[in-house]
């Protein structure tokens, strides 16, 4: 019973996902089949899932990076450009991910070096990254790719399993290990909970923060390798509306937006829910802006419910004391 209540949020996500799948089945009798479900999940969530894993680490340390979709677009353009000039695909993939790591690390370095709010920094960098994508790809972008370049986003492994979903599974397995099984992951939670205490106890906060941003950039560029194969298009304005989806997935997955709390499995469940829901809405012929409206509402409700419960608990508690002020130590 205690185990059940500890995983209440995750359980709710599973129930909602099943409900969304049932709804999709009612809408279309063809939905309920392995091929159809994997295909539609690949379409609706493979790309955002890879980025959401990276964004999760950044949110856990108490920051945010809204330039990840722009790094994805830059990765698309670079990858497509490499395809045009005939670079072997493995080298191109490595180069694109390296650029993503560099872009993410640059964001992190700016945030850490100047103590800046990450939203404002990444807002500016977003414009810069998209500008570079535009510089390389022009207005038209690219639409033709070498066969090997689209494998990751469109191939079926053993004729059944989309390669991109296998990648998502690998990414989430790795991230589960990193966040819950390594010192680095634990330190991310420590920083998110209390960066000051972490610094005072000797944790190299700047290094870990920059690494988190770099990992975010890596996932965004990894996602671009999927994106190119899936949509067979690369333009500087690619994925400009994906931010809502990935932020919603992270928040719905139970990651505390103030940092320090949340687990990888929750994010994966939230992605499955959002992906299934998106497919259902597609089957029901919901137009794009209405689908975004639903996701946006889910995002707001998902943050609001725990807050309201918290406020209510505070109101009902017998001793109404203001929270104790943060202890102030001597600056080192």
């Amino acid at each position: 019973m205690r185990a059940l209540s500890a995983y209440r949020w995750e359980l709710l996500l599973v129930v909602l996902t099943v409900a969304a799948a049932a709804w999709a089945t009612v809408l279309s009798p063809y939905y309920l089949g392995f091929d159809q479900i994997t295909y539609s999940l690949q379409q609706s969530m493979a790309v955002p899932a890879v980025i959401a894993a990276g964004l999760m680490i950044i949110v856990v340390i108490g920051e945010i990076d809204i330039s990840l979709p722009a790094i994805l677009a830059l990765g698309n353009i670079l990858f497509a450009h490499f395809s045009q000039i005939g670079v072997p695909v493995w080298l191109a993939g490595l180069a694109v991910v390296a650029v993503g790591v560099g872009a993410g690390a640059l964001n992190g370095a700016l945030v850490v070096a100047f103590g800046l709010p990450s939203l404002a920094v990444t807002l500016g960098m977003m414009g810069a990254y998209r500008a570079f994508a535009l510089l390389i790809g022009g207005q038209e972008g690219y639409a033709a790719f070498d066969e090997s370049y689209i494998w990751l986003g469109s191939a079926l492994i053993g004729d059944v399993m989309p390669a991109s979903l296998v990648l998502v599974a690998i990414v989430f397995a790795v991230f589960t290990f990193v966040m819950h099984g390594t010192v680095y992951g634990r330190l991310c939670y420590v920083i998110g909970n209390n960066a000051r205490a972490a610094r005072l106890s000797g944790v190299r906060v700047p290094l870990i923060k920059v690494a988190a941003f770099a990992i975010g950039g890596a996932t965004a560029s990894l996602a671009s390798l999927v994106y190119v194969g899936q949509y067979q298009s690369a333009r500087a304005d690619n994925a400009s509306d994906i931010l809502l989806f990935i932020v919603s997935a992270v928040v719905l997955g139970g990651v505390d937006i103030f940092g320090g709390r949340g687990n990888v499995v929750g994010v994966l469940l939230a992605l499955l829910l959002l992906g299934t829901l998106k497919n259902g809405m597609g089957l029901a012929n919901f137009p794009g802006p209405v689908q975004t409206l639903v996701v946006g509402t889910l995002l707001v409700v998902a943050v609001l419910i725990p807050r309201l419960a918290e406020l209510n608990r505070a109101r009902l508690s017998p001793r109404r004391r203001p929270p104790a002020p943060e202890p102030r130590g001597q600056p080192p």
Binding site: I257, F258, P287, V290, L293, L299
Partner: peptide, 23 residues
Amino acid sequence: YGRIPSVIATLGTLSIFRGLAYL
């Protein structure tokens, strides 16, 4: 009053208001 970080709240209403206009 909901104590939601402004980035998250207004990212949500960004899509909600746009969707309402569309509807």
